[in-house]
């Protein structure tokens, strides 16, 4: 402390690396997994497979993006899968059953999803109810409403849907499907919101220390409700995208997706307790999830449930890593 220029050991580069250790670890695991899979399976190392990682997991990715913002604040939203299911069947019913133009159906779905998220956020914030309980109730509510719309899946036959399904962006080595484009666009927006607006930084500040955030004069209540609203909106977008990809709406769409989404966010280096995280990490987490799925598919011998176990183990490993980093910091 004698010298006033304070530089912890190791210098700037090392420290930045250390501060982003969860993110760096995630990137390392992704590269390692991809390398191993490419070595094991012919044809894994191709542009098409890489692009499909995005396209095949776009629905999950969208839901995870919104959830990332909620987890930034130290909250949790378990309803993302159910909301996606509800909007997917709602959109299908409105377009196929009522003959609505897709844009109108999408707008209604988006509005309902966002409003639903805001309502849950409002309850959590104003009545100090536990987030997991309210969003669990949200799972029941949204899933039940989805089956209220229709108990069976409804297919959508609309020229716009056909056009979107055939929309590809040529990229040289591969063609980017519409779903991947939508995901990347949403990622860019979420990245801007999360890392380049006061709102996004406030979310992290709330998760880091809510009391401090209040004392600093940040709009804590508003930001938290907005985070849940955005999460609901993202889940609605995920449901809409699901109808585009499959050409149908299904009330059972996204069952269990909330767990995958949480895993993706946490593997992406975002602290479940809040306060630390990256939107970019969620992309990395999503790609890890995708590589595991794709590798299991390529292999054919290992059954799909291994993905759940591997994801669970990764979740455990990351939570323990975060725990370890946190306790070391306190000891220091």
């Amino acid at each position: 402390m004698g010298a006033r220029a304070v530089e912890p050991e190791g210098g700037r580069g090392v420290r930045i690396l250390r501060q982003n250790l969860p993110l760096v670890t995630t990137a390392g695991i992704l590269i390692a997994l991809y390398a191993v899979a490419s070595f094991l399976y012919d044809g894994f190392l191709s542009g098409r497979v890489a692009v499909n990682l995005l396209g095949d997991n776009a629905v999950l990715g969208l839901a995870a993006l919104g959830l990332t913002l909620v987890i930034f604040t130290g909250g949790i939203d378990l309803s993302v899968g159910a909301v996606a299911g509800f909007t997917s069947i709602l959109v299908a019913a409105l377009i196929s059953g009522r003959g609505w133009p897709p844009a109108a159906a999408w707008a209604v779905a988006l509005l309902l999803g966002t409003g639903f998220g805001a309502a849950m956020g409002g309850l959590i914030q104003s009545c100090r109810l536990p987030a997991f309980l309210i969003t669990l109730a949200g799972v029941f509510f949204a899933r039940g409403m989805a089956f209220q719309v229709s108990t069976d899946s409804v297919s959508i036959d609309h020229p716009l849907y056909t056009r979107l399904a055939e929309l590809y962006l040529p990229l040289g080595v591969a063609e980017l499907p519409f779903a991947a484009m939508a995901l990347l666009a949403a990622l860019a927006v979420a990245w801007l919101v999360g890392h380049h607006t006061r709102f996004g930084r406030n979310l992290l500040a709330i998760g880091g220390n809510e009391q401090s955030a209040v004392l600093m004069g940040l709009p804590v209540g508003r930001a938290k409700v907005a985070a849940y609203a955005l999460s609901g909106g993202c889940a609605a977008l995920a449901g809409i995208l699901a109808t585009v990809i499959t050409g149908s709406g299904d009330p059972a769409r996204g069952v269990g997706m909330e767990l995958d989404a949480i895993a993706v966010v946490v593997i992406g280096g975002t602290l479940l307790a809040g306060g630390r995280g990256h939107v970019a990490g969620t992309l990395l987490g999503l790609l890890i999830f995708g590589v595991i799925q794709a590798a299991l598919l390529f292999d054919g011998r290992l059954s799909s449930w291994w993905s759940r176990i591997v994801v669970g183990l990764l979740l455990l490993a990351f939570i323990l890593l975060q725990r370890f980093l946190a306790s070391r910091k306190r000891a220091a």
Binding site: W305, S307, R308, G312, I319
Partner: peptide, 11 residues
């Protein structure tokens, strides 16, 4: 964690 992994183990 067990909620996620458990179902995989069951399968």
């Amino acid at each position: 964690i067990l909620m996620v992994a458990g179902r995989g183990v069951a399968q």
